[in-house]
Design a protein around this nucleic acid. Sequence first.
DNA 1: GTGGTCTAGACCACT
DNA 2: GTGGTCTAGACCACC
Lengths: 122, 122, 122, 122
Amino acid sequence: MYELEFDNNVPIYIQVLNNIKSDIVKGALLPGEKMLSARDLAIKYQINPNTASRIYKELEAEELCYTKRGLGTFVTEDQEKVENIKEEMSNALIDTFIKGMKELGFSKEQLIEMISERYERG
Amino acid sequence: MYELEFDNNVPIYIQVLNNIKSDIVKGALLPGEKMLSARDLAIKYQINPNTASRIYKELEAEELCYTKRGLGTFVTEDQEKVENIKEEMSNALIDTFIKGMKELGFSKEQLIEMISERYERG
Amino acid sequence: MYELEFDNNVPIYIQVLNNIKSDIVKGALLPGEKMLSARDLAIKYQINPNTASRIYKELEAEELCYTKRGLGTFVTEDQEKVENIKEEMSNALIDTFIKGMKELGFSKEQLIEMISERYERG
Amino acid sequence: MYELEFDNNVPIYIQVLNNIKSDIVKGALLPGEKMLSARDLAIKYQINPNTASRIYKELEAEELCYTKRGLGTFVTEDQEKVENIKEEMSNALIDTFIKGMKELGFSKEQLIEMISERYERG
DNA sequence: GTGGTCTAGACCACT
DNA sequence: GTGGTCTAGACCACC
């Protein structure tokens, strides 16, 4: 069971999905490594097994993992895919951040200052 | 009519709401200024009139505007409210940004560098 | 309700999926056209609404359609996507066919003859 | 050990089964010839021994091979059985091919042209 | 034991 | 009325 607190405004499966993606990107899940079974994932995050299944299905659609029938689900061995996801996810974060802050009227210097201040706290 | 392209994954009313809030924060909409009628807002953003109404209802609930019966809707004159919104919105942006980037394994220095690089581009 | 007879060896949602894809490829569903609601799709094919939803979700993942919140699901306007799908689907069919028949020892001439004979019948 | 790459969407035992059937049809495995032991089949294809056993069980059920206790498994000597299998397999291939391509809107002439072009390549 | 599919039904948010 | 999410539970095929 997991200590993750869900943000109710974001679908659970998205949150778990991002969690797993981060694990792959960070190397907490290694290429070729066997992942939790869908059922165990469900237990870990206290979610319904179907929801867990769905998460793996999405990961597979993004080619971040693959399934061997009857054996389980495994992290992709294609390191390039992993790099792409890292790019993609960080770009999305940066873009919404900069776009939003500009809209509010913050300067580059202000952004840098705020980040310096808060990085350790967060 | 407006050039805003909607992100279909975010409710339209949220997107317009944030747009208006930003306008107030930036001063594009001044305290006490008369706002568009719901009907005109609907036309400007090409949205359903019901959606436009809802947006004003939410703005009113946050006390960022008020309605004078028969005269229209006006931006709040309470500058403190405006400040609060600015804080609130920027905090939300910063928090998701830092939290997400940390999860992906980025350091403070990397964040600052990336922002420096991209601020002008965005 | 629909006259489709399901092949029990293939998941229903795949069969319906291919059906809809074919409709798009053939132009029976035009770019930008509103598609059946998930509920109506469920009725048409006599399947569970969740299954119908899932089908649209997959189509959307392949960018063959897009969703406007609260309004419905629409066929993509990107004609290139449609062309790609046509290529992809026909290539898959041809490749399995040729590969399988070669494995069985059939020559090119035999294949052509068999197709000539059976095309009308099928 | 074998160079076969498995398609994860098709059960492994089906893939190996078809492989062996093709070998019989093509004459790579001759009537009366002794086949690999289940154990060696497992090694050749890098599969689970249980899966290998299952494959022979299915082949036997279709009467394409028979077992002499203590001696091993042998290819059937009944040439008619072999012919039937060839018919069956090729019909299945042709039918899915023609049905699918028709659905996509291809004409008989187009099919023939595509096959002419690709047969050598495949 | 593993994942895959399907049904059923509930609840929610959006337009 | 539209799609989106989640739960629950069943059944199947595969290894």
